[in-house]
Every structure is written in structure tokens, then in C-alpha cells.
Amino acid sequence: MTATSATQLRSPLYLTKLTTRDLDVFYGDKQALFSVNLDIRKNQVTSLIGPSGCGKSTFLRCLNRMNDVIESCRVEGKITLDGEDIYREGIDVVQLRARIGMVFQKPNPFPKSIYENVAYGARIHGLAASRPELDEIVTSSLQRAGLFEEVKDRLEEPGTGLSGGQQQRLCIARAIAVQPDVILMDEPCSALDPIATARIEELMEELRENYTIVIVTHSMQQAARVSQRTAFFHLGIVVEEGETPQIFTDPKDPRTRDYITGRFG
């Protein structure tokens, strides 16, 4: 699309997938985000860290306009996907959410079979013309989510019968099946045990090849492990943002330093 070339001139080493300019978000009269300016880079994992209630999830949900679901939420400012303002009049939200997928904090597989869970998105967007095509999409999505081997013999069983970690990977497969460009993850591992967490963190590194990933996490260690760029949110503003190693070893802002060192949080 259009603005990609402009950003390419500015920074030849990476492409910007999503940008946010002067983003203010209100819940009724209460303001949750103040003038957020943040760029999300293509094919990188960007993590959003900060203490609870600082606006990370709110920000994340703005990116795929999930906040539209909440009555009292008001969004002002500009968010672009590949240069196009996603809050513009006439933007198709359904299409947007097909391009930007989401994985939630608590795994929420549908009460359907594993196969149907993954096939759901592909069905509604009409991505498969025939059953074999659909099978292909389901298989490859499950493989990319690293779940195929474990469930290939029981695709007809209900998705709710899997363990927590498997359910979350199922949700990731479900999101992948729609073939998005971006995957948003809202604290995807907070309800999982360490082994399942590790598995998903591995997954993120594999997924990075084909998708842009934005992850909200309350675990700094996780952010340090999986992301290339990190943004630190505090009380609704982005205090600091930059390369992950730099944020964690040499933060510029004192508030960042305090959070990193565990002074609060």
C-alpha cells in the first residue's frame, strides 16, 4: 500500500506495520491512555510491559478495534495499519479483524470440535472453496501452532477437553487459520503452567517469521526472552520504548529503571 514506501525511506532496516499517533482513550469520563505514540515493526515481537491497570490491554484492544464492543469506550487519535487509518470512516471492522488476530488471556476455545475451532475463521471468511482445502488450512494452522502432532488423531473431540496450554495453542491455531498479518496476544501465558508457557514462547519465535506479533505481558522475564522491542507503559502513557536488550539493561527513564528493578509493580 501507499505509505510503506515513505517509511522505508526513513528506516531501511525494518518496515512499520502499525503506527499510533496521539492516541487518547476514554472510558466514559475517565481517560485510560494519554497521547500514545508507538510504532509496531513488521515481523518482530513487540512486548508491552508495565504494572497492572496502566493501559497495556486497552492499547492492545485498540489495534483491532475490540474496544468497539465496549459501550463507554471512546478512541481519539490515529492508528494506521500499513499506512491506512483504521478508525477512518468506512473502514470495515470485520476485515480489519481478519488481518489482525487476537489471542486472549484465558483460553476461550469454542464448544466445538478441535477441527471446527480452527476451521471457524476460515469458514466465515470463505477462505476454502472445498473440504480438502479446509483440511489443508486446519492442518497447517495446527502445525504452525505446534499442536498438530498432539491432536491429529482426535480432531473431532471437543476443544474444551484439552489442557490449558493446548487450549491456548488451539486459540493461536484458530487465529492463524484466518491468515492475518498481525497477531495480538493479551497475556497469553498468565493462565498457564511454566512448561506450557515455555512451549508458547518457543512458538512466538517461530511465528515471527510470518507474522507481526504484539504481546502484553506482566512478566519482564518473558518480555526479555521473546521480544525484540519493548514499550513500558505506566499510568496510561508510554514512558519508554526501544530495543528490548537496551530497555532491560540500560533504561533511560528513571521510572523504567524503578519498574525493572522491582521497586514497584
Binding site: 510503506t4 500499513d82 470463505g126 477462505l127 491468515q179
Partner: peptide, 13 residues
Amino acid sequence: EGSLHTSDAAARK
């Protein structure tokens, strides 16, 4: 980039 979801066919659907 995004052509799968932004193509004409997708728009019709």
C-alpha cells in the same frame, strides 16, 4: 501484504 483480505473477491464476500 493483506491482499488475501483486501482483494476484490474478499470485498464481495
